[in-house]
Write a protein that binds this DNA or RNA. Structure first.
Lengths: 175, 175
DNA sequence: AAAAAACATGCACTCAGTGTAATATAATAA
DNA sequence: TTATTATATTACACTGAGTGCATGTTTTTT
């Protein structure tokens, strides 16, 4: 982390990082598949947390409400300062940035599986895929806003705002 | 393309690709920033097409309908066979896959800008970000399904199904 | 035809990532 | 404790992506 802050992501070589950590270059690659993984591993397995939360959630008024509340609970457990710091470092590398986006797709997949267990009717599949996409997407939008604002508002609030915007934009009052 | 099919993405070296194309390795990197870009450039600038379509679209009943119809028009112009072929090649490399996901974020950004021009009210910003996210997300889900199915149904149909699922999942009948 | 701009290439270099084999360290059985 | 056996660490050598720089080769422009 110190090296990344001092020299940037590309500026710090694996050699330097390994030496600073008191191990050899080769041993570094025994613990991390790539240099990117240093930052990616910090992100943690949000997808699995999210899915687990959905599985243990009580019956809800709607799938959307259940997923929204699960998202709020998961994110309540993540310190905002860490989010800001990790995000700042990740901006340093395009390939890290790309893999981060790719990780959202995995989260979506994990979340979909969990949702699917609760509503297994085949004809609902597409709708539930959409739900998972929206949930992960809203969470991503919230974290983008949160980082953009530099943590001005608490993450919970921003996240709730994102989910509320979904409701507001798509819930048309039918006759 | 031939080399990628024969030897896989990682199996084909830039050296070989350049030679097969009748140029030098160094010249290759004059045209492509990276090996990944060979496949990524095939994807084309879908985001810009999408945004342009939104800009030229006639007034619509709702932002959602406008964006949905724009998506349908853009995708009508893309040959399904190409989509399948490109997708098959892209599966060969994790880093290409990652950059592809990252490109969806850029599409979202471009789309958001275009939508924003039509509804510039500041208080709508979050809702329109959500709309762009959902539109790009639905398009992505549709193309995932389309590729999964190997092109069994026409892309238009799958895409329409994805947007319909959004409506179905979120349009609750209020009293 | 001469000058300038754009394109192509060769060369040398850095660095990420991998396979392999040797060596050290820790864990376990005797 | 000692011998044995995993397991962790390392050195070494190699491939291949990507870059900077200098030089050569076309096109354009004047």
């Amino acid at each position: 982390m110190r090296l990344f802050i001092e020299k940037g992501f590309d500026g710090a070589t694996v050699e330097e990082i390994a030496t600073a950590a008191g191990i050899s270059r080769r041993t570094f690659f025994h613990y991390f598949e790539s240099k990117d993984d240093i930052l990616l591993s910090l992100q943690g397995d949000v997808g699995k947390l999210f899915a687990a939360e959905v599985r243990r959630a009580p019956p809800a008024t709607s799938p959307f409400a259940l997923v929204r509340d699960a998202a709020l609970r998961v994110c309540a457990s993540i310190p905002g300062d860490d989010m800001l710091a990790i995000d700042r470092l990740m901006r340093g590398s395009a390939s890290v940035q790309a893999r981060k986006q790719a990780s959202y797709r995995q989260q979506e997949e994990a979340l979909f599986s969990a949702i699917r267990e609760r509503w297994p009717e085949p004809e609902r599949e597409t709708r539930l895929r959409v739900l998972a996409m929206v949930a992960v997407g809203a969470t991503r939008l919230a974290s983008e806003t949160f980082n953009q604002e530099g943590g001005a508002r608490p993450f919970d609030e921003v996240l709730r705002g994102a989910f509320d915007a979904v409701t507001a934009e798509f819930t048309t009052t039918a006759p």
